[in-house]
Amino acid sequence: MASSRSPADRPGLDGVAERRFDMFVIGDVGIEVRATLPDIRFADVHADRLTYAPARAIVAGTAVNLARCATRYFRRVGVLGKVGDDDFTPAIRRELLRIGADDHLRVEPGVPNGVSVMLRDRPAPAAGAGAGKGVRLLVVQEEPPGRRLTAAEVRSAAAGIEAADVLVTDGYSLLSPVSGEALRTAARIARDAGTRVAFDLVPHDADARLPAEEIVPMLALADLVISEAPTLARLLGSAASAHGAHGVRELLPVLDRAVPGRPLWLLRFGDTSLEHALAYRRDGLLMEYPTGYGAGVERAGFGDRLAAAELYWWLSGGASASGAADVAPRSA
């Protein structure tokens, strides 16, 4: 059932007055062009088309997107990613400075920065699942610099990982053997230092890109896993539908069998896999709550706002039975 102590309620999605805890984020960093097409549906385009719509280029990527939200909750946020060496590089570094994040970027000389294009079309007019959000087309530059972040570069940033209360990582790094090993190295450094490890299972079709045996070991290294419930169901071969609350609960014993330990699972579900969440820990927490996403709420960036609030809630003891803080913030 829903709880007034859910992270969407407290601390909420708008940040906190007193920032606590230190976060270290490893992920993609680059440039993204975003546009929403208010008068076009992809299904209706059969020829070349010109349209004028809100469009902008921003510094983005999984690490920057989360850090931008996390600086409203966390006392310190460090960002480690591999970037290129071109005219965008100073802009990327200025953006980290602007949002108040610590720059741990590694630069690969002589290569361009990664660029992505995100287009969202006009929502379908019919009511029902999928209505109201439009379809997203995300085009990502093949083999951006982040895929070449090395284990040695992670080890060179070990002090930042060890000093943090939580290391946050994501599944895009697993798409390359090089950055995948870097990610596992970071998780082991964190665990040895007593730093919590959080893992966001993206892309949402990770199950179609990687076999379970390449993803489950990372899940086993994590203290907290964020995922759309259907992604995990497909990955683990579960028959659970994992779209409604009942289907998500059917998935829980599958998680217990597949992944050792007692990670905290934050499972997204609903019509668009973002409206509801279920927090679950083996032999412990079982809490379902609305995320606050719905009609009239901007989808771009919402997942990062929610994740930042959930991570702060977790470290503050929101996932414990007593409500006592799970982590004592490390000294600055």
Rank of each mutant, 00 (worst) to 15 (best):
D192E: 14
A151S: 14
I161S: 00
V154L: 04
A190M: 02
G130K: 15
V202M: 13
V166C: 13
A190W: 01
P145T: 07
G146R: 04
L201E: 09
A193H: 02
T195E: 06
R184Y: 12
S176Y: 01
L210G: 15
A206H: 01
G171M: 04
P203S: 09
R184N: 07
F199R: 00
V139A: 14
A187G: 08
A208Y: 03
A190T: 01
E142G: 07
T169M: 11
L138D: 13
G134Q: 11
L175G: 11
I161H: 00
E153G: 05
V139L: 15
I215C: 14
G160I: 11
K133C: 15
P144N: 07
V168L: 13
R155L: 09
R184T: 04
E153W: 02
R209M: 12
I189A: 05
L138W: 05
R136T: 14
P217C: 08
E181R: 04
G146F: 15
D205T: 11
G134K: 05
L175V: 05
V154F: 06
L201H: 02
V154D: 03
V197Y: 05
P177I: 09
R147N: 14
A208I: 00
E213K: 08
A159L: 09
A208L: 14
A186G: 10
A208D: 13
A198H: 04
L201Q: 01
S173H: 06
S179E: 03
I161C: 02
R209W: 08
L138V: 13
D207H: 12
G194I: 06
R136P: 10
A164I: 08
R155I: 00
V135N: 13
G194H: 03
L201T: 10
S176W: 02
E213F: 10
E214H: 12
R147I: 07
D200P: 01
E214R: 14
R191H: 13
V135W: 03
G160P: 04
S156R: 12
D207A: 10
D207M: 00
L167G: 07
G130V: 15
